[in-house]
Design a protein around this nucleic acid. Structure first.
Ligand SMILES: [Zn+2]
Ligand SMILES: [Zn+2]
Ligand SMILES: [Zn+2]
Ligand SMILES: [Zn+2]
Lengths: 146, 146
DNA sequence: ATATGTTACGTAATAATATAACACAAATAA
DNA sequence: TTATTTGTGTTATATTATTACGTAACATAT
C-alpha cells in the first residue's frame, strides 16, 4: 500500500521534516538553508545536511518550493499548484517576500513551446523580480506626497 | 554621450569582458563562473572576481544571461530578447545545453498578472528543465527499436 | 523472531559558488 | 590639469551545497 502526499497535514513527516516545514510555514518570507539551520539549532539540528535532506523531501512532496534565483526556500502557499504543473513567484527585492502564483495560460503556452520544439519538460520555474505593492506605497510615502 | 549596447560586436569591452564573452559564445552549453575561470587561466585570469565582474557587466549589457537554477552563464543567443523584456530557457538535464526562447504572449500574461497585483516587475526568469529532442532520440535508440 | 530492504539520521570533511576590502591603474569628463 | 568614474589584481572570507561514512528506525517477508 502506498500513501499519496497532497496536503500539508496528511503526510507523515519525520521530526526534522516537520521542524523545517513548520518553520517555513511560520515565516513570512523565504529562508535560506543556513538560516533555517540557525533557527532550528535550539531544536537539536546541528548540520547543514539535516536541513538539506528535509528540504529535499519536502520539495519532493510539493510542500516546499525552492526559489532558484535566491537560493532560498518557501512553503507552498498555493494548494492548486500541483494541478497546474507550473509555479511562479513574484519576489520583492525590497522586503524579500515572495508571492506565489499559478497561471494555466502561461503553463499551456510554455508546454506548447516545449512540444513544438520536441523538448520533454519536467518542471518549470518562473521568478519575477521587482517591488511589491506594499513596498511601493512605502517608498511613495517617504518621497513626499503626490 | 552615451553608448547603447545592443549587439555583440558593437560594444567596446575591456580585455577581461571580451575574454569571458568570447568563451561563452564559443561554448555550446552554459558555463559556471569557476569553469570560465579555469578556461581563462592561460589568458592570465587568476581570481573569481575577475570573472564575476566581467559577467556582471556583460549581463548588464544584455550580452549574457544567468541561469538561476544552475548557477551558470550563457551568451545571449536571441537578438530580440531585449525587445520582449522576457527571456526563457529550456535546459536539458542530460546534455546540459540551454535553448533560449522569447515569447510575447507569456511576457504579456506575466506583466498582466504583475500590474493586476500591483507588483512592479523589473526582470523575469523562466527556466524549463527536461530533456531536449536530441537526447530523447539517443535514449530511444539505446533502448531498442520501437 | 530473523533477515532483508528501505528510509532516515548524525557527523565530519570538503566542494562549489559568491562577495568584501583594499590599493592601484586606465579611461573619461570637467 | 584635476576630478570622477570605471576597471584591475590580490587576498581573504562568506555563503551555499555535497560527499563519504557509519548507524538507527521501520516495514515486511520468511
Ligand atoms: Zn505551490
Ligand atoms: Zn516588498
Ligand atoms: Zn537573450
Ligand atoms: Zn540534451
Amino acid at each position: 500500500m502506498k500513501e499519496v502526499a497532497m496536503a500539508t497535514a496528511e503526510v507523515k513527516l519525520t521530526k526534522n521534516q516537520r521542524l523545517v516545514l513548520d518553520l517555513l510555514c511560520a515565516s513570512d518570507a523565504p529562508m535560506s538553508a543556513y538560516s533555517i539551520l540557525d533557527q532550528l539549532r535550539t531544536e537539536g539540528l546541528r548540520a547543514p545536511l539535516q536541513v538539506y535532506r528535509a528540504l529535499d523531501k519536502l520539495i519532493g512532496l510539493g510542500l516546499v518550493h525552492r526559489l532558484e534565483s535566491m537560493n532560498a526556500f518557501v512553503a507552498c502557499a498555493h494548494p492548486a499548484c500541483h494541478a497546474v504543473e507550473m509555479v511562479g513567484f513574484a519576489i520583492c527585492e525590497t522586503c524579500g517576500k515572495a508571492l506565489e502564483f499559478a497561471d494555466n495560460d502561461v503553463a499551456e503556452i510554455l508546454s506548447g513551446w516545449a512540444s513544438a520544439n520536441g523538448f520533454d519538460a519536467k518542471s518549470t520555474s518562473i521568478e519575477i523580480k521587482g517591488t511589491c505593492a506594499s513596498c511601493q506605497e512605502k517608498s511613495e510615502d517617504s518621497s513626499g506626497a503626490e
